[in-house]
Computed example of a mutant assay.
Amino acid sequence: MKEVLRNPHRQRILQLLVSRKVLTPKEIAKELKIGVPTVYYHLELLGDCVQKTSRGEYSVTEKGIEVYRSEIMNASSKSSGMPVLYSTISLLIARPFLAALLGLVAASLELAVCYRTGFIPFMLGYRPVLENSALPVYYAASIFLAFAVLEAASYALNRRLGGEVPLLTGVLLSRLPLMIVLVLALAPLDAPSVAIAVTAVSQLLSILVLSIFLSLSKGIRQEISIILGLVLLYLNLLVYSSVQL
């Protein structure tokens, strides 16, 4: 299969089918600016990665999605300068039990530090409170809201379910960079500008981790996943500002 996917046209065909669900050979030819017979040739070589519908359209199979995640997206990660992070997250997705265990450990650690510092979580941040007895509720709501937004967005793009467990794990693990803010709360800085900068960097790191989980679990292109992460950050700011009012 690696030999088959070395051709950029076949890579692009698989990418189109993952993102758009179904396409006719004519539509694929228009996108790739090649002839329809050539499209049929590439579709035949893709084998059981694609399937033909009763209406003459082509869609990607589950095997095709897995191939797309493991081969094409990993190759793009190497060219983007994030091979270690990509390969690590790919390894976690391939081992769901280990990923879920790490997610639970991360959640437990974050809850413990939140209790210690007097913060409650938002989707991509925290807010100080005087009394945090409802912390587990806030935490669960924050995780669910982030997951629901990303799940709805990915379904709107792909019209396909699947990958919910690794995405939820990604939501949990992507909060690890945010805990830098909690660590700063334990040792407050006298320079507010430094604290703001550290918060911004931690949120960007969180978005990066989350976008990779989203890409690999849902078959969404990395740049689209990053945009969805930024949308999540914007929603986080809206929620935070509304609470502050």
Rank of each mutant, 00 (worst) to 15 (best):
Met1Val: 09
Lys2Arg: 08
Val4Asp: 11
Asn7Tyr: 07
Pro8Val: 08
Pro8Gln: 10
Leu14Arg: 11
Leu16Ile: 14
Val22Phe: 14
Leu23Lys: 11
Thr24Pro: 10
Pro25Glu: 12
Lys26Ser: 09
Glu27Pro: 02
Ile28Asn: 01
Ala29Glu: 05
Lys30Gly: 10
Glu31Pro: 11
Val36Ile: 15
Val39Tyr: 02
Val39Asp: 00
Tyr41Ile: 03
His42Cys: 03
Leu43Arg: 04
Leu46Tyr: 00
Gly47Asn: 12
Val50Lys: 05
Gln51Asn: 06
Ser54His: 14
Gly56Leu: 12
Glu57Leu: 10
Glu57Ala: 15
Ser59Tyr: 06
Lys63Pro: 08
Gly64His: 09
Tyr68Gly: 04
Tyr68Met: 08
Arg69His: 11
Arg69Phe: 07
Glu71Lys: 06
Glu71Val: 14
Asn74Ile: 04
Lys78Leu: 08
Val84Tyr: 15
Val84Ala: 15
Leu92Trp: 00
Phe97Tyr: 10
Leu101Asp: 04
Leu101Lys: 12
Gly103Leu: 00
Leu104Ser: 13
Val105Ile: 15
Val105Phe: 13
Leu109Met: 15
Leu111Pro: 03
Val113His: 02
Cys114Gly: 07
Tyr115Ala: 07
Arg116Thr: 14
Arg116Ser: 14
Thr117Pro: 09
Gly118Arg: 02
Gly118Asp: 12
Phe119Glu: 00
Ile120Lys: 14
Tyr126Gly: 03
Val129Ile: 08
Val129Trp: 02
Asn132Thr: 08
Ser133Tyr: 12
Ala134Pro: 04
Leu135Ser: 08
Tyr138Glu: 07
Ser142Phe: 00
Ala148Val: 05
Glu151His: 09
Ala152Trp: 07
Ala153Gly: 06
Ala156Tyr: 03
Asn158Ala: 11
Arg159Leu: 15
Arg159Ala: 06
Arg160Phe: 05
Arg160Cys: 05
Arg160Ser: 12
Gly162Asn: 11
Gly163Pro: 11
Leu167His: 10
Leu167Tyr: 12
Thr169Val: 15
Gly170Gln: 01
Leu173His: 00
Arg175Leu: 00
Pro177Lys: 03
Pro177Arg: 00
Pro177Ala: 03
Val183Phe: 09
Leu184Asn: 13
Ala185Lys: 04
Ala185Pro: 08
Ala187Pro: 01
Ala187Tyr: 12
Leu189Ser: 15
Leu189Val: 09
Asp190Gly: 14
Ser193Trp: 13
Ala195Cys: 09
Ala200Arg: 08
Leu204His: 07
Leu205Ile: 01
Leu205Trp: 00
Ile207Met: 07
Ile207His: 04
Ser211Lys: 05
Leu216His: 05
Ser217Gln: 07
Ser217Ile: 06
Gly219Arg: 05
Glu223Ser: 13
Leu230Ser: 11
Val231Lys: 03
Leu232Cys: 06
Leu232His: 04
Tyr234Phe: 12
Leu235Asp: 04
Leu235Ser: 02
Asn236Trp: 02
Leu237Val: 02
Leu238Met: 07
Ser242Met: 11
Ser242His: 06
Gln244Pro: 01
